[in-house]
Design a protein around this nucleic acid. Sequence first.
DNA 1: TTCTTCCACTAACAGTTGTTAGTTTTGTTC
DNA 2: GAACAAAACTAACAACTGTTAGTGGAAGAA
Lengths: 197, 197
Amino acid sequence: MAEAYATLSRKEQVIRQAAELFKEKGYSASSMRDLAQKLGIEAASLYSHIKSKEEILRTLCFDMAAEFRASLAEVESQPVSASEKLRLGIIGHVKVMSKDLTAAAVFMNEHRHLSQPYLREFLLLRINYINRFKQFIEDGIASGDFKKNIDTKLAVMTLFSSLNWLPLWFSPESTIEPENLGTQLADMLINGLKQNA
Amino acid sequence: MAEAYATLSRKEQVIRQAAELFKEKGYSASSMRDLAQKLGIEAASLYSHIKSKEEILRTLCFDMAAEFRASLAEVESQPVSASEKLRLGIIGHVKVMSKDLTAAAVFMNEHRHLSQPYLREFLLLRINYINRFKQFIEDGIASGDFKKNIDTKLAVMTLFSSLNWLPLWFSPESTIEPENLGTQLADMLINGLKQNA
DNA sequence: TTCTTCCACTAACAGTTGTTAGTTTTGTTC
DNA sequence: GAACAAAACTAACAACTGTTAGTGGAAGAA
């Protein structure tokens, strides 16, 4: 099973296997001995590659965060309407998650086990990211693209709830491509299920 | 702090405090000594009231599940259109969660720590619940209420993602009432954000 | 008073946790 | 073959885990 990661450095292999373990059992319920077993080594041997269990979690969480930020920055730089930016932002978010669904699942579900000050830093990054999506929605309301009476906080939290659960149920064997998936998701959230009269 | 629950039996107090702890730190990261401390007693004393740590989780998860099922059954019995059933189902789901946001958070986030055969039973209940919502969407498409080209699996998972994250960010101090919240959420998912031309 | 129910206590268990120190094996490069 | 770095090993640590056994006190009913 480790052969699939043969080209990765040993440290990267450790982190990848840890991501799978954390996703499956949760960070706290995953022991270093579990992780070692997945790699076919002793628990103590892990410390030749990583400093601590939490360092793995930090790497996973902050690497994902950086990818999300880069994706959003690119969208913001484009000369399109707010509603189109929202659409592109959603597609970008889905694309980033699709590149590593396992890490994405850990990112969203296990970040709370970070200790301070990393947890605080992580949450600040996240609130910033969310607020920039919220801005798209507010701009879209101001321009008349979106309905006037929308509760923007509710809207943006609903949006992220949908996006963030995706890694938990979406299987990579699915035939649907990330781009297509993102497009459908964006359409659903922006246009709704209802047939336009 | 335990005074707020003064009218509850001691066992109910234990379960309530456990729910808060599990929500905050997660099931695995919560120790029985943590829980005992919240109640001002020793860890061993907890076992006068409960059989095991997992029994608490089971109680929380299956009690919530029963409430969700009851809510859905009522909706299904009503003589209304599929799209209206979907709307009422969403509102009902939000109402049930709002009655106990803490238990709802544990229900959605920590159920995976149930051991067999309880986990299997829980997942069966959940898939059944989800499929009944999926049926609303399929019926809505068949009747022409909803768009023809909807991916129903994607739609229903998006729906539940939105609903299930609610307990994590929605604060009970909010002025918005459950009924209103449910209505807004249903409107957003069914009609979308976009202004109808 | 005595009996019973509830609820707490102390003491201890066997197993698991993340991590360390120091050592040895393995594979590559000179 | 010597030297070197990478990566594994054994042994052990202190702390923490859920849980059991047995005990005692307090409140209400008989």
